[in-house]
Simulated assay, not measured.
Amino acid sequence: MLDESAYQALMSITKRPASVMVYGSGSWLTDHEGKRYLDFIQGWAVNCLGHSPRVVVEALSNQASRLISPSPAFYNDQALRLANQLVVHSCFQRVFFASSGAEANEGAIKLARKWGALHRNGAYQIVTMENGFHGRTLATMSASGKPHWEKLFEPKVPGFIKVPLNDLDAVVGSIGPETAAVMLEPVQGEAGVIPASREYLQALRRLTRDKGILLICDEVQTGMGRTGTLFAYQQAGIEPDIMTLGKGIGAGVPLAALLAKEEVCCFEPGDQGGTYNGNPLMAAVGCAVLEELLRPGFLERVRELGETLRYGLLQLSRKHRLGEVRGAGLLLALVLPQPKAEAIAELARERGLIVNAARPEVLRFMPALNVTIDEIAVCLGILDQILGEVFETA
């Protein structure tokens, strides 16, 4: 282990084990002592192609030798290329690039409020979901529905009304003359992988159209192939007015995006920006990632791998008398009968498997989209052993 003083320079913001990660390849991480870990978190669904994928390394190397950042005052070829590809493969016409999902969501909130000011007599309120998660800026924390954030960093940004997910009547009751938009994750990741139902999303789309307000889909975690299609909204057969992307779009580098329909775009010069936003180094990576996801058969393979992992988790649930398996694609959760997720995640890490305790009673799985069948089998085997020990099942 490193000397304890080596850890003190970093501000303490989360509990971390003493292991220091120094190398990653595909689904595997290696720490400073040479121990290897099968990573089924992948930076919270960030490393969609695994650790240090060749296409990302090559994109970074090639672009770094050409142009890193001309500033947002100029167009650059990589940002234009990525924006056009996103437009071609989505229902949106305009793209703004950012450096994090929280920044993209902050932009979506600003865009909705500007639109409300122009088209709904100054409407600024946004209906969001209880237990939702939209980021860690002050506005996105205010939009989020995490209970233990309620009294943190007060006073918060006003204008967000929280309702339960999948409760259309609650949304109806929250819409008034000051409402500009409804904002939600198609699958609530931080809440423990809780999907919005297809019927709910379709009804929400009809409702927002009837009421003349916007629908915003936060696809920071669900987008870029994570749920088995390029974007999760496509599985519901709807078209949001605004969508945000992050995590997987950069496959490990700081890249995010705000996408919107043409009729919603109302930013004027000076309203929105960012020093690093749309820089060609990150945009080149985004292009490489998108090209990989769009290769023939790639997303079909994600769906197949997701079903393999889901089936394995269902078998473990039956064997050890656990709860439901929920989610889509390679964003899945296993519900436990007791709040032992953190203990299980800790035991798994000790045995070389990294999984996430999303909630005290929920384990979350977000492996690389190109994880192998054999790696899934290793994950399930380690879990099987641990679950047998923890829940004392035969």
Score class of each variant (00 low, 15 high):
Y200M: 12
I194W: 06
W149Y: 14
G135P: 08
T140N: 05
V172F: 02
K162Y: 03
I194L: 14
Y200C: 09
K162T: 03
E154Y: 06
S142Q: 08
I161K: 12
T140C: 10
K151V: 03
F133W: 14
A203T: 00
G132E: 12
T128V: 10
A139K: 07
E190S: 10
Q202M: 13
E199F: 03
K151I: 00
I161Q: 09
A196R: 02
K156H: 14
K146E: 15
A203P: 00
F153N: 14
P177C: 04
K156R: 15
N131D: 13
I161M: 08
E190F: 11
F153E: 13
F153T: 10
K156C: 07
E130K: 07
G135V: 04
T179M: 04
S197L: 04
A143E: 08
S144A: 12
R205A: 13
K146Q: 14
G159F: 04
T128W: 06
G159V: 02
K156I: 05
H148S: 10
Q188A: 12
K156P: 02
K162F: 07
M141L: 15
V127G: 10
P177Y: 00
T128E: 05
H134V: 06
E178Y: 11
V171K: 02
V171D: 01
D167N: 14
P177F: 01
I161L: 13
E130R: 06
L168I: 15
E190I: 12
P177G: 01
P147D: 07
Y200R: 02
V157M: 11
G135S: 08
V171F: 06
L165E: 00
G159K: 04
G145D: 09
Q188L: 15
A170Q: 09
P147I: 08
N166H: 07
E178T: 12
N131C: 10
Q188V: 02
A139L: 02
P158L: 10
M129W: 00
A196L: 10
P155M: 09
L184I: 01
T128N: 07
A196F: 05
D169I: 00
L152T: 11
P164F: 08
G173C: 02
F160W: 08
G189E: 05
V182P: 01
A143D: 09
S174V: 03
V127K: 06
G135L: 07
L184T: 01
V182E: 03
G159R: 05
V182N: 02
E154W: 03
K151A: 11
R136G: 03
L201V: 12
T179F: 00
G145I: 09
S174Y: 05
I175A: 01
A196G: 10
D167W: 00
I194R: 11
G159S: 07
G132H: 07
F153L: 15
V182T: 01
A143N: 10
T128A: 13
W149A: 10
F160A: 11
G192S: 01
G173N: 09
E185D: 04
L168M: 10
E185T: 05
Q188G: 07
E154V: 13
V157N: 01
W149F: 14
V157A: 08
Q202R: 15
E185I: 00
L138A: 12
L152S: 11
V127N: 07
A180C: 15
K162Q: 13
P195W: 05
E130Q: 15
E130L: 12
S142N: 08
